[in-house]
Computed example of a mutant assay.
Amino acid sequence: MYLAIFGGTGHTGRHLVDRALGHGHRVTVLARDATKLPIREHLHVIEGDIRSAEAVARTVAGADAVISALGQRRWGTTVCTDAMRTVLPAMAAHGVRRLVALSNYGTADSRRPGVYATTVWIAIRSIMRDKERMEELIRGGDTEWTIVRPAALTDGPRTARYRTGTDLRLTFRSRVTYADVADFMLAQLDTDEYVHRAVAIGPVRD
């Protein structure tokens, strides 16, 4: 399979690239700085900005699926929203249907009344707002999308031991590794279980 990955130089993105190449996929990554990813067989890095329609189109062209692991690196940016404004038209133009995108638990319908959602929205409001707007664009587009909403992300190895579900309740104690989230996102390319659905992922036990 040929995959286009956005956010491939980030914490989750690097694990996605490693897992995808390890599974024998061909991967193209759009990165602002191509030197952040080492030269590897079956990996093609395009240097450019996610807001560039031309760079995004080059990344998406010929892909079987698109995976976005984008997230804010500077407070107050709108990188995830901006990305979908270029990625979705590029997918439509090149006939790419499958999209798996990383969001945050606490957005949209997972923003349930209580201390968790209130605290998260106060602490990282700009991030949550950006992710929520990204989700709105994805839902309004014409792709076979899956939105992944993880618990608090941490470093650590892939364990393949995690819970997922569209109505999963996560708490302040919930933690999941970047590697496990990448594992789950990549696995969505082999199933339609969560197509047109937003799914949370967290630990087996808090």
Rank of each mutant, 00 (worst) to 15 (best):
M1W: 06
L3N: 06
F6W: 08
G7L: 11
T12W: 00
D18L: 02
R19G: 13
H23R: 15
H25G: 13
T28A: 15
V29S: 13
V29E: 11
A31I: 08
D33Y: 07
D33M: 06
L37S: 03
P38C: 01
P38H: 02
R40M: 02
L43W: 04
L43P: 08
L43K: 02
H44M: 03
V45W: 10
I46L: 10
I46D: 09
E47N: 06
I50D: 07
R51K: 02
E54W: 10
E54P: 10
V56Q: 09
A57L: 07
R58C: 07
G62R: 10
D64M: 05
I67Y: 01
L70N: 06
L70P: 14
Q72M: 12
R74T: 11
V79I: 12
C80L: 03
C80Q: 12
T81W: 00
D82T: 05
A83Y: 09
T86D: 14
P89F: 09
A90R: 11
M91R: 01
M91C: 15
G95A: 13
V96T: 09
R97M: 03
R97W: 03
R98K: 09
V100K: 07
V100G: 09
S103P: 14
T107M: 08
S110V: 08
S110T: 13
R111Q: 13
R111H: 13
R112F: 06
R112L: 12
P113K: 11
P113S: 14
T119L: 15
V120M: 01
I122M: 15
A123R: 11
R125K: 11
S126K: 01
K131H: 14
K131M: 06
E136C: 02
G140R: 08
W145N: 04
T146V: 00
I147S: 10
P150M: 01
D155C: 03
R158F: 07
T159Q: 00
T159E: 06
R163S: 15
G165P: 10
D167L: 15
L168Y: 05
R169G: 00
T171I: 14
R173T: 02
V176F: 05
D180S: 14
V181N: 04
V181H: 04
D183I: 06
L186N: 06
L186T: 03
D192L: 03
V195S: 12
V195F: 04
H196D: 11
H196T: 04
H196R: 12
A198G: 01
A198K: 00
A200N: 10
